[in-house]
């Protein structure tokens, strides 16, 4: 169990570091790579959770450094959304990206596997 947790933390870190270094688009890339190497039948769900963990960590760091709540209120006002919805969207977005990429990889792998 600890091993699973540790792997999850590592994956979440990977999402965070890749996003920090290269940008948001690395989320589906990391998820796809994970899906390629992982044997976990729930790899898509795990990828989604870890993406939320990674972005959530970055969001928490932002909040510790500056007025994320204030930004959420202002931006929410601009977009006509409650601040909380924007913050939730910020976590749902990478989750769905990761899930869909991780789900897609085995499907593609299955479709290119040579017929036995």
């Amino acid at each position: 169990m600890f091993e699973r947790i540790a792997k999850g933390v590592l994956l979440a870190e990977a999402f965070a570091v890749a996003t920090f270094a290269f940008g948001w688009w690395t989320v589906p890339v990391i998820a796809a790579v994970y899906a390629l190497v992982s044997q976990n039948p729930n790899r898509a769900r795990v990828a989604a959770l870890c993406a939320v963990g990674g972005w959530g960590t970055l969001l928490l760091l932002d909040a510790l450094k500056g007025p994320v709540g204030s930004m959420a209120s202002r931006l929410g006002g601009v977009m006509g959304l409650p601040a909380a919805v924007l913050l939730i969207l910020t976590l749902v977005f990478p989750a769905l990206l990761a899930w869909s990429a991780a789900k897609l990889v085995p499907t593609l792998r299955g479709s290119v596997r040579p017929a036995s």
Partner: peptide, 28 residues
């Protein structure tokens, strides 16, 4: 993520917590 939809800017760069609006909140 990459393209704007109507008046909305591309969501990817906007919501990216390392480089988007949340990070800019941290930078103020």
């Amino acid at each position: 993520g990459f393209r704007s939809i109507g008046p909305l800017p591309p969501l990817g760069p906007l919501l990216d917590p390392a480089n988007g609006v949340w990070a800019s909140a941290a930078a103020v």
